[in-house]
Design a protein around this nucleic acid. Structure first.
Lengths: 238, 238
DNA sequence: GTTGGCAGATTTGAATGCAAAATGCAGGTA
DNA sequence: TACCTGCATTTTGCATTCAAATCTGCCAAC
């Protein structure tokens, strides 16, 4: 019960920004805080490094990963690909009940839009996107999606929306719902790609990538391929 | 230098089937074999569990993950999505040199096809797919792709090809090259999806998923989402 | 003959210990 | 004053140790 939980709690700490991106991760303090020894903590750090949330610097400790604008762009692009795939699959596999649930979220979301309530709008929005992923009935996809979206969540679901863009986003969501209703995978896939591309542009324009004071070569690491790997630095928040 | 290397070697051991899927992973033996202590080995196991290559059974050790037909299908679907995305991006970003390299691999591949040389054919084939991924210039994508393809590599690049299917595959590759030449992302994306879908169907038909003697509930685990998580069993080889 | 249960051995999960590397700081030198 | 050098301290990475859980084999009871 220890290991899983440690990974989860650490992940929360990192995603919530309790340890700010780029911040040092003090092993001893965290051990005390979580009331565990260094062994399970270090195991968790390795796992999170594989997820791209932690940067392991050999012999020099670990740091919370920072996202550069490039990182953010890369992540959004991948997210586009994953959601497009999910949309395609979801149209083949979604149940009527699942569709109904999405429609409910959608209607609620539109209500929040009309009232200009951003936070609840985003909540519904996120439910919809996640429901589409789940409807694809592909655990591998779900897993990758969670891992990718976790890292852009704050950028994605916090960025303020200028009214014109917000209107477009809602329109796109109408189209998403429509494509789902028609079970038109190709269309849904296309809309989702567009939708995410817009979101990406908005987030990047909103400045989630401007504070790039490139740190000089932090080590690589960050298993699973090249995720964070290529050694970035910077970004203070997200 | 230890940790990274241990993960790498263990991954190789698992992917090469040196420890067969579903096989127990004997910590002590592996420690002796790799000349390390249990601590770094266990860290590596946790990381590989997060990648979906290892199943962690609380208090009952770890096992090499097995792929069910469903797993294989899920992985191929995700691979479709990733390659489609890569194709789209690659068309925007590929350099002439990269394209030339792909064309060279392509020509060589066709030669091998004409001579009926499957293994070298697959080698070129794989180079092409990887080159497209790399041309997308997206480290996150590259990382996920590596992680996903590693798990289906043996199925994908070992399955024998009935002549008619092989001919179709080569034709598809002609189309891939053509779309790349024209920098037509939409077309390339579409072809890659189709190409991968065919491959998936072929692999599944070739029987890489038939030996499913469902093991009774092995624990879950296997971080990153639901990858292996949902607790499958079975498959003896791959 | 089979089943249930108990004691010993094995294995796992986590804590602690120890050597090596890195960091910080004081003092000396140009 | 700025910079380099050497030492003490801290931190990291791995090995070892220890407690708890699981597995194995044996015996008794039905």
């Amino acid at each position: 019960m220890l290991h899983e939980e440690v990974v989860g709690r650490l992940r929360t700490i990192l995603l919530d920004g309790e340890i700010p991106p780029g911040g040092r991760i003090p092993e001893r303090e965290l051990c005390a805080k979580l009331a565990i020894s260094r062994t399970p903590l270090r195991e968790a750090l390795k796992v999170l490094a594989a997820e791209g949330l932690v940067l392991l610097l050999p012999n020099r400790g670990s740091r919370a990963a920072k996202l550069t604008g490039k990182d953010l762009q890369d992540l959004f692009e991948v997210c586009q690909g994953l959601e497009a795939l999910a949309g395609d699959l979801a149209c083949e596999r979604i149940t009527d009940a699942e569709f109904a649930a999405i429609r409910t979220f959608h209607d609620e979301m539109v209500d929040h839009y009309r009232r200009g309530e951003l936070a609840p709008y985003y909540r519904c929005n996120r439910h919809i996107h996640e429901a589409i992923i789940n409807a694809a009935r592909n655990p591998v996809l779900t897993g990758l999606y969670e891992s990718v979206t976790a890292r852009i969540r704050r950028a994605r679901y916090v960025t303020p929306m200028p009214p014109p863009n917000w209107a477009v986003a809602v329109q796109e969501h109408e189209a998403i719902l429509n494509a789902l209703l028609r079970r038109d995978g190709t269309a849904l896939s296309h809309i989702l790609r567009t939708h995410l591309r817009h979101k990406k542009e908005e987030v990047i324009r909103a400045g989630f990538a401007e504070i790039e004071q490139q740190r000089p070569m932090e080590g690589r690491h960050g298993l699973f391929g090249g995720s964070v790997q290529a050694g970035y630095g910077s970004r203070a928040d997200i």
